[in-house]
Design a protein around this nucleic acid. Structure first.
Lengths: 195, 195
DNA sequence: CTCACTAAGTGCAACGAGTCAACATTTTGC
DNA sequence: GCAAAATGTTGACTCGTTGCACTTAGTGAG
């Protein structure tokens, strides 16, 4: 990796860092894009060359959420029902985050207290809908555009938004999956088990 | 209703009309708020006294969607399963709109081709989540904050977003409701039928 | 009828997000 | 070394949205 790419990554990182710190300290809406650019010592135009929007500054670490999601379906322990694996994956993300402590907790508080960020977060998350739908379809031997698989993927992913707004997030996710699991078993009796 | 209120309603209407026409003709993003104000011959400040945002100009006719939704659950024909009534209601809105022809079709095309509008529309729609959840809970004799009822309400409403993105909207709604209906029967065997 | 009150509308300036065009500076491939 | 491409800067601009000070015109009480 050449020097140029390293420098580019460096400014990008300093932007993300400055943004995170300022947003955590003063709140998302109280910090302007110019403040962030100033703190990272670049111009606002440069900022927008690295990040497409103000919200994007915070979700730098999207990484391979999608891959993990698809893997949770595809590479689950043999014999495990599809929806059980999916439910575990959804609940798992939550508990992993919990043990990381204050850092992540503060971040989540910030996101959940800012409507613009809640929305953006949800949009990012929902991008994986199609990938998940296809993974489910492949797994259960349905055509790739099967509407039931698409619905299942959509509704399963939505359980996160549901959790975000609920008093007891874990109970909310479980309630959603109770419905979906029973529904899926009834609609696709052999889903994911027979060939 | 005095003259003042009539005048107010008139300018409001002319704003909404001008907006609809301009948006349909040139596209939402191509028309600025200043253009709309100009076309209705008022100042931008006045426009914002009538509508809280650009998007709101288009969704003037929200009316009592929520009431209809709750009514579809509460006042359904005796003996009808809860989810059957809900499904019919969701599909019904669609077919009613279809028969109104080109006017509404063009409107829907406009909304669905503009991300900002899709989002706004969805947000409006999802506001009814709590009301629906409570109606379902009341109907099935569960506590008002029952997580399964909340999940069902959320997922049922989401079927609309699912439909919006699908190739065959009707099939998408039906797929979602197949899952939810079976799930609900399994989780709440007496839901809405026994006392 | 009039006078004070209030709601509606105006004009203008401003703010923050995001874009654009022109220019300056590396860094890199050859 | 040198040209081309990547990277960054500057400054002005558009657009949604808000605040402020102001005018105009219905309205209701006396």
């Amino acid at each position: 990796m050449g020097r140029r790419e390293r420098k580019k990554a460096a400014t990008r990182q300093s932007l993300a860092d400055a943004a995170l710190e300022l947003f955590l300290r003063h709140g998302f809406d109280q910090v302007s894009i110019r403040d962030v650019a100033e703190a990272a010592d670049v111009s606002t135009t440069t900022l927008f060359k690295h990040f497409p929007s103000k919200e994007a500054l915070l979700f730098d670490m999207d990484a391979d959420v999608e891959q993990a999601l698809v893997a949770a379906v595809r590479d689950r322990a043999p014999g495990t029902p599809l929806l059980k694996a999916l439910r575990t994956h959804m609940l798992g993300a939550r508990s992993v985050k919990a043990e990381y402590g204050e850092q992540i907790a503060a971040f989540e508080r910030l996101v959940n207290s800012t409507p613009a960020l809640v929305d953006y977060h949800r949009r990012m998350w929902m991008r994986h809908e199609r990938a998940l739908a296809e993974a489910i379809a492949a797994d259960s031997g349905a055509p790739a555009d099967d509407p039931v698989c698409a619905a299942l993927a959509h509704l399963a992913l939505e359980s996160r938004a549901l959790a975000g707004a609920a008093a007891d997030p874990e109970a909310a996710v479980n309630a959603a999956f109770d419905l979906l699991e029973q529904g899926w078993e009834a609609v696709r009796p052999d889903g994911g088990r027979a060939s």
